[in-house]
Simulated scan of single mutants.
Amino acid sequence: MLTTAPTQGSLPGTAQSAAPSAQITPTPAKQRVEWVDLAKGLTITLVVLLHAVGMLTRFDLAPEFWNGINGFVQPIRMPLFFVASGLFAQGMLRMTWATMLRSRVAHLFYLYTVWLLVFFVAHNLLPDPVAHGGYAKFSTVISGLVAPSSALWFIYGLAVFAIVAKAISRFPLAVQFGFAIALSISAYGSHFIFADLGFGWRNLGSYFVYFLLAVHAKPIIVKFSHLANGPRLLLALGAYAAVYVPIMVLNIVPLPELRLVVTTVGLLLGVLVASALVGTRAGNIFQKIGKRTLPVYVMMDILIALVVFAFIKASVVTSLPAVTVVAPLIVTALVVSGALALHTVLVRFGMNFLFELHPAIRGTAKKA
């Protein structure tokens, strides 16, 4: 799930596991948690990079090759994000409907609604060049309650995924995954209901299979993550390139449904990369970010707009070739660090309501 505070041994909002046996060495248990947080930090950083590149290239402040880089990591980014978000969500299936809807779904829909309103206010205040006209319309807030069409679609998706995963949990796994795969194929091909729905619902249809995979195949995914080493990383990268290039770049077989193959292979590569980064300097940075993904996710759109506007005003410097080449990295670093710092300040001033449904309403308040 999207997280707002550091985790210790498990992700927030999940049932705590029993204390490890004395016979179990601490390294695998430590790695299991660390690579998941790391994967979340890595993927949210890539999401910020995606949006930063989109706005920078619009103003010719970044070279086009960055779009190619985003395209290459796109089939890895969201499947890995949803797997990392669902890997410790098994407890929700054992909850009663009332408990799950109150503690998980209401919390997520609350966050989604609050930040729809924040987007509406912010984009009416942002300078015209970087304001999003759609977000500045109150009609978008209303329509967004039933059709996620903003950068917040991931939060909406987690709520929907929780409901659907629990609703189908009594069916055999073959039926559950058959449904999820059919949903993904339909979404990628824009078949049936997905022909008329916006990108948000298509994304939800495309990626539900990976959330379901995380919920039901945690031991397999964790065991696979322990295979990470240099040769296997190269093999996974080669396998990914072997499906990405002909399907996504060359379009040899013009079937968008084949993107499911690319995202699945991309997920395997992403898990190995995240696991391999554990303990490295870059991995430690991503791990820290991964423990507080929520503030980055909800604030990135507004902060990117502000930073890019500053780039526009400082075009004498930011238009220099040496700067434009790395501009997306600069913006991404400023936005991620700025979101985490701003979150700390907002919480310190008692504005927790921006990041969490009140514990008394959510049912997570400590008993006296």
Rank of each mutant, 00 (worst) to 15 (best):
P254F: 07
N251M: 10
V243N: 02
L269F: 12
G279K: 11
M248N: 15
T264D: 08
L268A: 15
L255Q: 15
L277N: 05
L255D: 15
V253K: 10
Q287P: 03
M248R: 14
L258H: 01
L267R: 07
I285L: 10
K291Q: 13
I247N: 01
I289K: 02
V245H: 04
V273K: 07
K288R: 15
L277C: 08
G279V: 11
P246E: 10
V249R: 14
R281F: 01
T280A: 07
N284G: 13
A274Q: 00
P254H: 05
V262P: 13
V273W: 03
K288F: 08
A242V: 00
G290H: 04
I252Q: 13
T263N: 08
I285E: 01
L268F: 13
F286M: 08
L267I: 09
M248K: 14
P254R: 00
L267C: 08
P256A: 10
G279T: 13
L260A: 06
R259H: 14
T263M: 03
V278H: 11
V243T: 12
K288D: 11
S275T: 10
V265F: 05
V271C: 07
L260T: 04
S275F: 07
I252K: 15
S275A: 15
L260I: 10
R281I: 00
T264E: 06
G279C: 12
L269V: 06
Q287Y: 08
V261Y: 02
P254Y: 09
I289V: 14
I289L: 05
M248A: 15
E257K: 11
L260H: 04
V271N: 05
F286W: 04
N251R: 14
L250V: 01
R259K: 14
G266W: 09
K291C: 03
K291T: 09
G283C: 10
T264C: 05
L250G: 05
L269K: 06
R292T: 04
V261F: 02
I289C: 05
T264P: 07
G290Y: 03
I289E: 06
P256Y: 07
I247K: 00
V278C: 10
R281G: 00
A276V: 01
P246A: 10
I285V: 12
A282Y: 06
S275C: 09
F286G: 03
G279Y: 08
G270Y: 03
V261W: 01
V243E: 08
S275Y: 10
T280M: 04
T263F: 02
T263L: 01
L269A: 09
S275N: 08
T264L: 12
L268Y: 11
R281A: 03
R259A: 13
L255C: 09
L272Y: 03
V271Q: 03
P256L: 06
G290I: 00
V249G: 11
L250A: 12
P246F: 04
L269G: 09
A242D: 04
L267A: 07
V273Q: 04
K288N: 11
V273S: 07
T293H: 12
N284M: 05
T263H: 02
V249I: 15
V265Y: 08
V273A: 08
L255G: 06
S275V: 07
R292W: 00
L268H: 11
L277V: 06
T280Q: 03
P256K: 13
I289M: 06
F286Q: 05
I247Q: 01
G283M: 05
G270T: 03
A242S: 03
S275R: 09
A274I: 00
V249Y: 12
